[in-house]
């Protein structure tokens, strides 16, 4: 199922602070979109607005023509996000947690869920860590695991906030490959990023930096 995202004159302000200046864009095809901009330009705010965690001050951001609405099961099934570090179970191994996410989304049997979880870890280059607990991981490994938790569920729109945090060049490459794979399967992926490798491989760049004034 394809998904469309349309933002029209969307902006967010709190008191006198502008968190997201007026932004308009639309995306209707499966693609990897790099959301760029300096710190404080509103990348995270835009993502939070699209998942319904932040109300717009002006304009609108629509997913499949509808306002983001977390109480709608259809919206929840369509949109996956990794904006903050997700909670992890202290006393479950990485494989168990990934398998649990798959089972919560209807994996037919536990054995298949565990096999798929191990494959996800392999793709993220941390296949050998499947039996570890989260507290035994480095910051980069934890970030890869957080990405794995998000990718273990089905979605047609994926919103990521700087998923490359703490990752070295090889791991960023693995991450891009996984994201491209999801795009090939029909998903629309919007990722806030500062890494040139991701920007150059993205099909499209959405820059939130203010346009320089040429007077």
């Amino acid at each position: 199922m394809t998904v469309t995202v349309r933002c029209h004159q969307l902006s967010v302000s709190v008191d006198e602070a502008v968190l997201l200046p007026e932004t308009s864009f639309s995306a209707e095809e499966p693609a990897l979109i790099a959301l760029t901009g300096a710190n404080g330009t509103g990348k995270t705010t835009l993502l939070k607005t699209l998942v319904g965690r932040q109300l717009p001050s002006t304009g609108e951001g629509l997913i499949n023509g509808q306002q983001p609405y977390e109480f709608d099961p259809v919206f929840r099934a369509a949109v996956a996000s990794l904006i903050d570090t997700p909670p992890m179970a202290r006393d479950m191994t990485l494989t168990e947690q990934l398998a649990l996410v798959r089972i919560s989304w209807g994996a037919e049997d536990a054995a298949a869920a565990f096999t798929a979880a191990e494959q996800t870890l392999q793709q993220l280059t941390i296949g050998e860590l499947g039996d570890r607990f989260p507290y035994e991981l480095s910051a980069g490994q934890l970030q890869l695991f957080a990405v794995g938790l998000t990718l273990s569920r089905p979605f047609s729109l994926l919103l990521l906030d700087e998923p490359e945090r703490h990752l070295d060049t090889d791991r960023v490459e693995a991450l891009i490959t996984l994201l491209e794979q999801r795009v090939a399967e029909g998903a629309l992926v919007i990722t806030a990023t500062h890494r040139q490798e991701i920007i150059s491989r993205a099909g499209r760049q959405l820059d939130l930096n203010p346009i320089p004034d040429h007077q």
Partner: peptide
Amino acid sequence: LTPFLAHTLLATEIPR
């Protein structure tokens, strides 16, 4: 719930 279960299950389309 425990934070991990809350985050995982409330993101699914299973009725809350």
